[in-house]
Design a protein around this nucleic acid. Sequence first.
DNA 1: CGAAACATACGAAACTCTTCGTTGACATCC
DNA 2: GGATGTCAACGAAGAGTTTCGTATGTTTCG
Lengths: 129, 129
Amino acid sequence: MSDRQPPRPTDAELAILGVLWERGPSTVRDVHEQLNRDGSTGYTTILKLLQIMTEKGLVVRDETERAHVYQSRYGEQKTQRQLLADLAERAFGGSATKLVMQALSGRKANAAELNAIRELLDTLEGETR
Amino acid sequence: MSDRQPPRPTDAELAILGVLWERGPSTVRDVHEQLNRDGSTGYTTILKLLQIMTEKGLVVRDETERAHVYQSRYGEQKTQRQLLADLAERAFGGSATKLVMQALSGRKANAAELNAIRELLDTLEGETR
DNA sequence: CGAAACATACGAAACTCTTCGTTGACATCC
DNA sequence: GGATGTCAACGAAGAGTTTCGTATGTTTCG
């Protein structure tokens, strides 16, 4: 009731979510250290973003310890699909198929990757039938 | 030299670009009428956005007539690929293959669409070989 | 001609995003 | 116990986005 669907994460938020998905539940310090390997953002910037993300419902905060522990509220795949559905809607006239075909065309794929995709197609076709 | 790569269009900008791709070169009035079928945005809102998009280099403006005619500077497919590459980078660890597979999994596809994708795969595999 | 319609330009308001400095609370350790 | 380090909270600045009102200049036509 009180939860509407999650908002689209912004760029900075997505970077943080990436760390949370990779590391699992983490403190601000954890995330900050991870993100500062490349690029540099201040500690309080990460903190602020995580606070906002908590308000938005993108992450869940465990406050039992002094250093709060943050965790992504939605799984990586679910978020990725959300983003893809969103992009399909905004830029592909709502057609996920167009999106897939454009993504396939616009790049050089190696044989192994193409095979993996083909296998996935087989699986999907089996289900449809 | 003076042109760097185009900026990622925002949501409202993408909606306008969609109209320009569909209709071809259009005046502010054209775009406004098209976008006001659903939702409502004022005329000057569209005008302002198109002015900003001109500054950004997303569209090109022909000022020879009194009602300026705007045209998307980059093709639909090019922009779509740009957006996909961008999303792959931000949310899929840079892997377009992961993006494709997630896009395929996260939806119900009909047989015709799957076949179209399969044919595209065949073509791509032929080129790689 | 003069009124109405139509066009661009400008500026500003409301909102979001990203950043970080400062403050105050709590902990640790000489 | 007092200095030093770690932490969350807060506020605010600066940029970008989206919205639109108002001003101003053209065109049209009765």
